[in-house]
Simulated assay, not measured.
Amino acid sequence: MARLIEVENSQSLPEKVVLQVGDLLVLKVSGGQVISGTDVVELLGPFQASLLLNNGEIMSPMGAPNTLMLLAHRRGQAQLDVVTGDPWYGPGSKQLVVVVKS
């Protein structure tokens, strides 16, 4: 069964993550890109977390995006560069290696 893996603190993100095919990794970062392995993982986002209100409307805060998702498609290895911090006032980046197993 595929797993939903949430990483709340980008500072605690390790340099290497091992996933299984079908896993969805949710990172609380403001952006990123796949450097290599685009056939192994799919990058979704960046997104801005929003709320569904009781009346069916969506409430979105103002500010930078804060969520990036990574879907593991096939076995292999990918390298990513993720953007941490505020992209306008205090950006940083971190390299991440993702290994996808069957």
Score class of each variant (00 low, 15 high):
Ile35Cys: 08
Ile35Ala: 04
Ser36Glu: 15
Gly37Ser: 08
Gly37Phe: 11
Asp39Asn: 13
Asp39Ala: 12
Val40Glu: 01
Val41Gly: 01
Gly45Lys: 00
Pro46Gln: 06
Phe47Asp: 00
Gln48Asp: 02
Gln48Thr: 14
Gln48Met: 09
Ala49Cys: 07
Ser50Met: 08
Leu51Arg: 13
Leu51Thr: 15
Leu52Trp: 10
Leu52Glu: 05
Leu52Ile: 12
Leu53Ser: 13
Asn54Gly: 09
Gly56Ile: 09
Gly56Glu: 06
Gly56Leu: 11
Ile58Trp: 08
Met59Ser: 12
Met59His: 10
Ser60Pro: 01
Pro61Leu: 13
Met62Arg: 11
Met62Pro: 02
Met62Val: 13
Ala64Tyr: 03
Ala64Thr: 07
Ala64Cys: 07
Pro65Met: 06
Pro65Arg: 05
Asn66Ser: 12
Thr67Gln: 08
Thr67Leu: 06
Leu68Tyr: 00
Met69Ser: 09
Leu70Thr: 04
Leu70Gln: 00
Leu70Gly: 03
Leu71Glu: 03
Leu71Ile: 02
Arg74Gly: 11
Ala78Gln: 02
Ala78Tyr: 01
Ala78Asp: 04
Gln79Asp: 15
Gln79Ser: 11
Leu80Ser: 02
Val82Thr: 08
Thr84Tyr: 04
Thr84Gln: 03
Gly85Pro: 10
Gly85His: 07
Asp86Asn: 15
Pro87Met: 04
Trp88Asn: 11
Trp88Asp: 12
Tyr89Ile: 12
Tyr89Pro: 00
